[in-house]
C-alpha cells in the first residue's frame, strides 16, 4: 500500500460562540494518497469546508482545532511552528475556492498576483517568476498566457478566473490541492471544462486533490474515493464505485435517493425527513439517529465507529460489522 500524503486523525474543530460551543468537526479521520481525487461530500453545514480550511491551518476565528492530527508526509502540521506551516501553505499544499472572483484581488493584474505567490515561495527574480507564471497558465489550458498576465480578474470569465486560481495553486509545485466547491459558481458547460482539467492534472502531474462538493454527480464523474460527512463526522468512506453501487449508510442511501434521475421520472423523490442536527447540542449516540428509518436503542446511546465492511469501504453505523450485525 502506498503511503498517504495527508493523514488526518480524529480532527476536532469547535467554534466558540455567544450561544455556546458549536461542534463543527467531531473526530474526522481520512487519508489522501498521492495521485488520487478524494471527494468530500455532504450538505450545508456538515463541516466540509472547515475540513478543507483546517488542512491549511486557515480555520477562521472563533473556530479552533481542539484535537487530532493532520500529518503531511508523516509530519504533524498542527505542531509545526507557524512559519514552517506558512511555507507549506500555498506551496506544497494549496487551496482553491468556490468563488474565484472573491479569491482574486481585483486591483492587481493576474501577473502581479501570480508573481507575488511564486516569489513568496521561491527565490526568483521578477522576470523568471513571470515566465514561470506564463508557463503554468499555459499548462492549465489558458490561451495566450502572456496576455492573460496583463489582465485584471474582472476581465476574465468565471471559468477563466478559476483556471487562474488553479494555476496559482500549482505555480509553486503543489502536491496537494484542496478544492472547495470549485465549480459550484460555474455553469455546467464550464464546470465540465474545469473538472476535466482537475482529472487531467491528477493523471499528468500526480496531483492529489481533496474535492469538496455537495454535488454527487460531480463526485461520480471525477473522484476515485469518497468520504461522506454528516454533522462533522465521516459516516461512510470508500471507492466511488462502492459508494454508488453498494451504499451502506442510511444517510448516504438517503442522499442518493433524493437526487432526481431519469429512471425516477414521474415518481416522487425520496426525501430525508427532518433536518441536520444543531451543532450546539449534537444528539447523543449516532448523529444521524433522529432522522434514520432504521434507528434502534443502541443508535441512541452509542456513537458508531468507522469500521471496514469491504475492501477499503468503511461505514460508521451499528447496522454493520461486529456483533451488531446479528
Amino acid at each position: 500500500m502506498k503511503e498517504p500524503l495527508i493523514s488526518v486523525r480524529d480532527l476536532r474543530v469547535h467554534f466558540r460562540t455567544y450561544a455556546g460551543v458549536v461542534h463543527a468537526l467531531n473526530g474526522v479521520s481520512f487519508d489522501l494518497y498521492p495521485g488520487e481525487i478524494l471527494g468530500l461530500v455532504g450538505e450545508t453545514g456538515c463541516g466540509k469546508s472547515v475540513t478543507g480550511l483546517a488542512l491549511l491551518g486557515l480555520v477562521p476565528p472563533p473556530g479552533e482545532v481542539v484535537g487530532g492530527e493532520i500529518r503531511y508526509r508523516g509530519q504533524n502540521l498542527l505542531s509545526l511552528p507557524p512559519a514552517q506551516w506558512q511555507a507549506l501553505r500555498g506551496g506544497k499544499i494549496a487551496m482553491i475556492f468556490q468563488d474565484p472572483a472573491a479569491a482574486l484581488n481585483p486591483v492587481f493584474t493576474v501577473g502581479e498576483q501570480m508573481e507575488l505567490v511564486i516569489r513568496r515561495h521561491r527565490r526568483m527574480g521578477r522576470d523568471a517568476a513571470r515566465r514561470q507564471a506564463a508557463e503554468v497558465l499555459r499548462s492549465v489550458g489558458m490561451p495566450e498566457p502572456e496576455r492573460i498576465l496583463e489582465t485584471y480578474p474582472h476581465e476574465l470569465s468565471g471559468g477563466m478566473q478559476q483556471r487562474v486560481m488553479i494555476a496559482m495553486a500549482l505555480s509553486c509545485g503543489a502536491e496537494v490541492l484542496v478544492a472547495d466547491e470549485p465549480t459550484t459558481a460555474l455553469d455546467v458547460t464550464i464546470q465540465a471544462q474545469i473538472l476535466d482539467l482537475l482529472v487531467d492534472l491528477k493523471r499528468t502531474r500526480g496531483l492529489s486533490i481533496l474535492l469538496i462538493t455537495h454535488n454527487l454527480g460531480v463526485v461520480a464523474e471525477t473522484c476515485d474515493r469518497v468520504a461522506v460527512l454528516y454533522a462533522g463526522f465521516i459516516v461512510e468512506m470508500g471507492p466511488t464505485g462502492a459508494i454508488f453501487q453498494a451504499v451502506k449508510h442510511p444517510y448516504t442511501q438517503g442522499l442518493l435517493a433524493a437526487i432526481p434521475r431519469p429512471s425516477r421520472r414521474g415518481n416522487p423523490l425520496q426525501a430525508i425527513p427532518g433536518t441536520v442536527p444543531d451543532g450546539l447540542q449534537p444528539p447523543p449516540g449516532c448523529l444521524f439517529h433522529p432522522r434514520c428509518p432504521f434507528a434502534w436503542d443502541r443508535c441512541r446511546q452509542e456513537r458508531p465507529a468507522l469500521l471496514e465492511v469491504a475492501d477499503g469501504h468503511q461505514v460508521a453505523c451499528h447496522l454493520y460489522g461486529g456483533e451488531a450485525a446479528r
Binding site: S157, G159, T189, Q191, G217, A220, E221, G241, F244, I259
Partner: peptide
C-alpha cells in the same frame, strides 16, 4: 447536446461521450 452531456450523472458507471464546449458564453 453539449448542455445535456456536460451535466454530471450521479453514477460512476454511466460513462458516455462528452461534448465539452470550448470558451464561455
Amino acid at each position: 447536446q453539449a448542455l445535456v452531456s456536460s451535466t454530471p450523472i450521479p453514477d460512476p458507471q454511466a460513462r458516455r461521450a462528452r461534448v465539452i464546449l470550448q470558451g464561455s458564453v
